Simulated assay, not measured.
Amino acid sequence: MAEFLNKEKLLEWIPKIIETSEKELIIISPYIKISDKIFNLLKQAEKRSVEITLIYKEGELSKKEREKFDEIENLNLLFHSNLHSKCLYNEKYLLVTSMNLYEYSQKHNREMGVLFRRTDDEANGWNDYKKGKDDDSIFQDAIEEIGSILSSSDFEKESFKTKTNKFDISIIKSNKDFAFDRCDLLNTFSKNKKFIVFQDGEEWLCRCDDFVDNVHLIIENNRISIELNFDESRTLNIYERLKTNSYQYDYRIIDCFRMFWTSHKFSPKLYSYTKHKIWDFDQNSKEFLEGYFKGLNEFFKLLKPEIAKTKK
């Protein structure tokens, strides 16, 4: 749940967001004059290999502050001509605030902010709504605005990673961006099968139409839905041959998948069979994806003969 922060709580949370950054940190602050404490926390984040991106207002950075940032190898420094927004953002938290990263503001000004959580780490049990994670739509809207600010900013200093590879920040990727990345990855291993991004309500998913004739495949996070585009009687005939019972633990193991199909009115679903070795691999790895498509092919070896039997 969103939490209102007064000045005292802001002074607790600004350092905490830097400290809890695991891989990436974004700071947007028009005016910057950081305290020794904040500078040391940024240096500690550098030692943890956190990629730091800091955006300030053009013309508002002193030579002294600029020299400080030269000491931080993992820091991207950008400026924006019309910046007035202030926020800190990492994998777990988004803080929108009136406070600049400016020592004077932290000591003398009246400030406030709102904290949003992308994690349940602080929650005391499943029903601790006060410290539970906030709705994902908040972060999708924030990501869009942060991304817009970034794209309209100019670089002053590039991190080592940006210089040697490219500027790529995962925490500002939207669900739509991740779906495009996933489809691109699937397409590198799917040979002639083409996955495309499509929107289903608020979700962005990967879809392959006609994986076999009149059978579409939809990847929905941790499961696969199989759409059979046949008339009801034909679908029912296929279902009768392949169905599983409507009990929670009744499923059919097909290579690396568990198949559930409890009604011909619904699509067959494939879930991970976690005892299979491929689920120990990183899901972006060659080993995983080759095994994943092998499992899909095994499923269609079972399905295709049943489709052929029901042809009129």
Rank of each mutant, 00 (worst) to 15 (best):
D128G: 05
Y129S: 09
F230D: 01
K47P: 06
D141M: 09
F160D: 14
P305S: 01
Y247V: 07
L10W: 02
T119R: 03
D210A: 08
K311A: 11
F266G: 06
S29M: 02
N229S: 03
S49Y: 12
L302Y: 04
L205E: 05
E8A: 10
H264N: 12
V96R: 12
T164P: 03
M1V: 09
S263T: 13
K312I: 04
S174R: 09
Q106V: 09
E65N: 03
C87T: 08
N76L: 05
L217E: 06
I307C: 05
T188L: 07
S21W: 01
L75D: 06
M259P: 03
K304A: 07
V96F: 04
Q248E: 11
L78K: 14
E202D: 12
I196N: 01
N237A: 12
D36T: 14
Y251L: 09
P15W: 07
L94E: 04
R118Q: 15
N297Q: 10
N237C: 06
D121Q: 11
Y251S: 11
H108Q: 06
Y31G: 00
I219P: 02
E73W: 10
E240H: 05
I72S: 08
D181K: 10
D141R: 13
C183Y: 00
K131L: 13
Y292F: 15
G201K: 13
I146L: 08
I38V: 02
R118F: 06
W13E: 00
S98I: 03
R66D: 11
L25M: 04
K23C: 01
E103I: 15
F116Q: 05
K57V: 08
L25C: 07
R258F: 13
K294A: 02
G125I: 08
D154T: 12
F189V: 05
K64A: 13
I169V: 14
K194D: 09
F281I: 02
K92C: 13
K161Y: 07
K9L: 15
K47G: 10
Y56E: 07
H216K: 12
K57H: 05
K131M: 13
L61T: 03
E144V: 12
W261D: 05
